[in-house]
């Protein structure tokens, strides 16, 4: 079975997003999401490694009627592993965390991450109380996730095993106030500036 390709995975997951709010982790998932198509309702992180899932939880608490999807890398998720416990305790039903797992720190020279040494992120999420927690390896499983991500009761966790093949860096906007304001304007309208 051939490994899934990260850019194709991101494109497939985001094509069904509708009005969902998306947060991406620094590095490859930010590039992947931008390559798949920019949106003001995508908040790209360029730093604060380990924070992506928690940014998503703050959003999920504030916007209970919207679907919130965090897409991040395995290295970024590992740095904020405790946040899975925090999300498990909070149990937001409108929330999903997706880890694009290549088993590598791609930004820093392709060193192996803990997942390449056998650490099972879905098992961690399951132990933390996520309503759904699975590891995705095949196209059929990915097709199922694409549907569940935006409709299933959360919190949902999925680790998607992808090819370690390097991808081109696609430079998403990285001006913080711009990303902040366009997101809030698209979500809150005039209230963004109150």
């Amino acid at each position: 079975m051939s490994l899934l390709e990260r850019r194709a995975v991101m494109s497939q997951l985001l094509r069904s997003r509708g009005d969902a709010l998306v947060v991406t982790g620094l590095g490859s998932t930010t590039y992947d999401a931008f390559a798949a198509g920019d949106s003001p309702l995508t908040f790209y992180l360029w730093g604060a490694m380990g924070s992506a899932a928690m940014v998503g939880l703050g959003l999920a608490n504030a916007q209970r009627r919207r679907r919130i999807v965090v897409v991040t890398g395995d290295g970024e998720m590992l740095m904020g592993l405790g946040s899975l416990a925090t999300i498990g305790a909070a149990r937001p039903a409108n929330f999903a965390v997706v880890v694009i797992d290549n088993g590598l720190y791609a930004e820093t020279g392709m060193q192996r991450t803990h997942t390449a040494h056998g650490v099972d992120l879905a098992a961690v999420a399951r132990g933390c109380g996520f309503a759904v927690a699975e590891t995705i390896r095949s196209q059929a499983e990915l097709d199922g996730l694409e549907q569940a991500l935006y409709s299933g009761a959360g919190p949902i966790f999925a680790a998607i095993k992808v090819s370690p093949e390097p991808t081109r860096i696609e430079l998403a906007p990285r001006d913080g106030p711009y990303l902040r304001s366009r997101f809030r304007e698209a979500l809150l309208g005039e209230d963004a500036h109150r």
Partner: peptide
């Protein structure tokens, strides 16, 4: 109110950013 117990304080920074993006103060 949404009271959120954290495992470590830095989680609260991300949470505050997400809350603000979603239109809430924290």
């Amino acid at each position: 109110l949404k009271a959120v117990v954290l495992t470590t304080e830095e989680e609260g920074i991300g949470l505050a950013v997400g809350a603000y993006l979603g239109g809430e103060r924290s």
